[in-house]
């Protein structure tokens, strides 16, 4: 079958991107990497992309395939065409000339990293950010045991999901938080960070949790856009790993630690009090720290005034009719969880 490959190319980091289209006769079972190899070997040797194992192990060939980051060696032509056909079938469009056209695959470099050439990006920040979470088991503080640092199979199994990460960069490429926050270390690094936090051999758990919870370079920088969970080719679910680090931090810190922690604690308290969130109190308690943070409180004043002026400000709050039941349920659930953790 004839397929067009629309590749977003770039000669150098400084040059502007342009589109180059190649036509190939392919089979549905061909991977995108097979196709790119054929383009390079048969049509245009100047096309640059990373590749190595061809088998979803090395993580070299991540790129944007039809609008999302994925491994070129994992995705194949047949599945991609089915996906594109599903999207086309669900699209109501005004005009169509009715002529059948060969299907088009759009291939672009990953995001959030500068392009070196064509589909090759500079992953320096990706590696530096991984390094920043100290991704090594630390046993310095322990006495050296007689034989080795033993770990039961069950303790080891808990690390498997994060251990499956092949550091391909797909999550980092799509991370919405990275786009606006150059200090955020990224989902790959924080998934690895969680692997270290729950490693029974590591001796730095508390220090790690304190560090990963500082500012917005760590877990509180995540905006929960779900892209990392969604594109990860290895089911590492980085956002969920970030959530588990947050859970451990929330177990240890109170609402005076910082505004990120307070945001979470206050939300649950307000649901206990009213079933729904009373947004007026949410602002005052989280940003204004219950009148302790006057600067924070003042920062809300323009928003409050705007909302009053437009009639948007909620003057009243109606509690859920199930509030008592919900409060009791939340308290019981939290108590059960605490018992299980201890």
């Amino acid at each position: 079958m004839q397929v067009l490959f629309k590749v977003i190319r770039q000669k150098s980091p400084e040059s502007a991107p342009h589109i180059q289209t190649y036509e190939l006769d392919v089979e549905p079972g061909n991977t995108i990497l097979d196709c790119l190899n054929r383009i390079k070997w048969e049509q245009d040797g100047s096309l640059a992309f990373r590749k190595n194992c061809r088998n979803t192990i090395c993580g070299s060939c991540a790129m944007r395939i039809n609008g999302r980051s994925a491994l070129a060696c994992k995705e194949n032509v047949g599945d991609e065409l089915s996906r594109l056909q599903r999207i086309a079938a669900s699209t109501i469009s005004e005009a169509s000339d009715g002529k059948p056209a060969p299907p088009v695959m759009t291939i672009a470099p990953m995001g959030n990293m500068p392009v070196v050439k064509d589909l090759v990006v500079d992953m320096k920040s990706f590696w530096d950010n991984l390094q920043a979470v100290d991704p090594f088991v630390c046993t310095q503080a322990r006495q050296i045991p007689e034989r080795e640092f033993l770990q039961t199979p069950e303790e080891r199994d808990r690390l498997n999901q994060m251990g499956n990460c092949i550091l391909c960069g797909a999550c980092y490429s799509e991370c919405n938080a990275r786009e606006v926050n150059p200090d955020f270390v990224g989902p790959h690094a924080l998934a690895k960070a969680h692997r270290m936090v729950i490693d029974s051999r590591d001796s730095q758990t508390e220090e790690r949790l304190a560090r990963y919870g500082e500012g917005t370079q760590g877990v509180w920088g995540c905006t929960r856009c779900y892209y990392c969970n969604s594109v990860c080719p290895m089911d590492v679910v980085p956002m969920d790993q970030i959530g588990k680090i947050k859970e451990k931090i929330l177990d240890r810190q109170d609402d005076q630690t910082n505004r990120s922690v307070r945001h979470r604690k206050v939300l649950i308290e307000l649901v206990k009090n009213g079933g729904w969130i009373d947004e007026r109190r949410f602002g005052v308690k989280v940003v204004g720290n219950s009148f302790r943070d006057l600067k924070g409180l003042m920062s809300l004043a323009p928003l409050g005034l705007r909302m009053i002026a437009s009639g948007k400000f909620p003057l009243t709050f109606e509690r859920s009719e199930g509030t008592e039941e919900v409060r009791s349920l939340i308290e019981a659930a939290q108590q059960l969880e605490a018992e299980q953790k201890s």
Binding site: R264, I268, V271, G275, I277, E321, T323, I330, A333, E337
Partner: peptide, 30 residues
């Protein structure tokens, strides 16, 4: 659903998966 409660907007899950599941299982059961 007058007796329903806030879904937690992803924040319950950061306290625990069990909390998010329990409160929302109740919402669905309503």
């Amino acid at each position: 659903l007058k007796k329903a409660a806030c879904c937690g907007s992803g924040t319950f899950k950061e306290d625990s998966q069990f909390l998010e599941d329990t409160v929302n299982a109740r919402n669905i059961a309503l």
